[in-house]
């Protein structure tokens, strides 16, 4: 079965681009434009990988990830890995992400090869 990936980013250009590419690569992709939408999706569906932006209005990406982890715990699902993609180089956020033990922390704009390598690493 194809792996399911959740892409969370408030910028529609970014989500469209990533989703398109991942689909071409044979993955099933859902996208969310905010933390709230992402959580709602995560309630319903089980994902194998989450790709999230950090800086988003109302709820930042790390918050969303925490909430999703909670949901998965409650629902007794396996935890998917998380890849953070961000355009903002803040040390604090980077540190926080490290502490949360995300699988990868990638800066936008990224080389697609680098991105795919991380994705494939997480899904094997």
């Amino acid at each position: 079965m194809a792996k399911k990936i959740l892409v969370i980013d408030d910028d529609v250009l970014v989500t469209k681009s990533i989703v398109k590419y991942l689909k071409v690569k044979g993955y099933e992709v859902e996208s969310a434009d905010s933390g709230k939408t992402a959580i709602a999706l995560a309630q319903r569906l089980a994902f194998d990988l989450i790709v999230a932006d950090i800086r988003m209005p109302e709820m930042n990406g790390l918050e969303a990830i925490r909430k999703i982890r909670e949901i998965n715990s409650l629902q007794g699902r396996a935890h998917p890995q998380e890849i953070i993609i961000t355009g903002y180089a803040s040390d604090d956020l980077q540190k926080e992400a490290q502490e949360m033990q995300v699988a990868a922390y990638i800066y936008k704009p990224f080389d697609i090869g680098e991105f795919m390598a991380a994705v494939e690493r997480c899904l094997t």
């Binding site: 250009l13 970014v14 993609i85 800066y107 704009p109 990224f110 697609i112 991105f115």
Partner: peptide, 11 residues
């Protein structure tokens, strides 16, 4: 800027 750049590069 990084977001639109992402879109351009990715595509």
């Amino acid at each position: 800027i990084n977001n639109p750049l992402t879109a351009i590069l990715t595509n």
